[in-house]
Design a protein around this nucleic acid. Structure first.
Lengths: 209, 209
DNA sequence: TGACGATGCAAGTGTTTGCTTATATTTTTA
DNA sequence: TAAAAATATAAGCAAACACTTGCATCGTCA
């Protein structure tokens, strides 16, 4: 039963020919995932769409799962880079500027390929256990540290940090897919920053009432 | 190819015997979904786990999809009822009480069967197009109306309403699964209410800066 | 009680799918 | 340039899968 063990390629593409094959396979996989969903993704269809023979595909990927894992890895690389770039831009030292940079970073990452992102988030079963900590989670930790350093203290600071990351990720994710107008116009980011800064301005956890 | 068309049972369970069969099938489906995930859900395994013959299963469900749809329908009924009950409890007329009731309603719904809820949200492919509008979305609309009636006005009121619903759903959903301690202690609800009420207290959309 | 519809079941069927084998062709290397 | 390594491909295998057939048994009601 445990036939799906390895993820490493059984052969590394050395020549340009085989590199083109690998690229074609990954591109075809993304195409089918976005258009038809994970349930309709088969290795035979991938090979057909990519214009390569099914056996060639299995020269470079040990099994179907490995193809999706590699595609997800590359997608993660791109979104991480987008987040880092957005966070690296110069900005003011105040809370609101920091929050705007944070939300903007999530937005930049989410805007790269929303359709593919949606497939990974909603359809593709969890592969290889949980996914590695993404840039989003890492920078939420950073922002929590920033909050603490800003004099914002609370017994629930850690919970507030988790909520901050969750709200950013969820709202931006759904916003790009369901409220594209607001996402493009900047209204979504503005409203997010307004909400988060009002929440965190005083202290993140004076609690209710 | 379009073999998966009907959802209605091909025969209605009339005797107690067959009703027990249907219940066993649904219960087994939930069990397998939670334990092994949608990818490992097969009709043969359902029948085996339910202790009924595979042909008996197909007497009352036209196909595999119909079983999952029915299970999801029942789960939706339960969560909707939990939300409605939570919202029907008497409460103060102010914004914070309203928000607390709203967040509490999402929490009540999410607490019913978080594991099954997670499977439906993350693993089960979208069945029969989009899901019917849940109680969550309906009551977010209500709350938006409440905001408007409370004198809170904004050109972005509709966006704020969408954000309100999205934040509630996402944070409660992930919170129950990943922060069960905070969810049980009430800290999660408190922090949510603090965030939302500070955001909405003045006006939902003075925007940032 | 007996006839008939409702239900249960053993044993399949045809198809899809992930993946392999055996062989041919191209590119690199010595 | 010839051997060796890398890459491509046609054809197909075994397993898993959703679903069916044909018949036996049970429950109900005349």
């Amino acid at each position: 039963m445990p036939s799906k063990r390895r993820i490493e390629p059984r052969r590394r593409p050395l020549q340009a020919r085989s590199q083109a094959t690998v690229e074609a396979v990954l591109q075809a996989t993304a195409y089918i995932l976005v258009r038809d969903g994970y349930a309709r993704l088969t290795t035979n269809r991938i090979a057909e769409r990519a214009g390569v023979n099914i056996a060639s595909l299995y020269q470079f990927f040990p099994n179907k799962e490995a193809i999706v894992v590699e595609l997800e890895r590359r997608h993660g690389e791109r979104t991480d880079a987008a987040m880092m770039a957005a966070l690296a831009r110069p900005r003011g030292p105040d809370l609101e500027s920091t929050l705007r940079a944070l939300v903007g970073a999530y937005m930049a990452a989410q805007t790269i390929d929303p359709a593919l992102q949606r497939v990974f988030a909603e359809e593709v079963p969890r592969l290889r256990g949980r996914r590695s900590a993404s840039a989003g989670e890492r920078c939420a930790v950073e922002v929590t540290a920033f909050l603490a350093a800003s004099g914002v203290t609370s017994p629930r600071l850690e919970l507030a940090g988790w909520m901050l990351a969750t709200v950013c990720r969820s709202v931006v994710y759904h916003g790009v897919l369901e409220r594209s107008t607001d996402a493009c116009s900047g209204a979504l980011v503005d409203e997010m920053v307004a909400m988060l800064s009002r929440w965190l301005r005083a202290a993140p956890s004076a609690s209710a009432a």
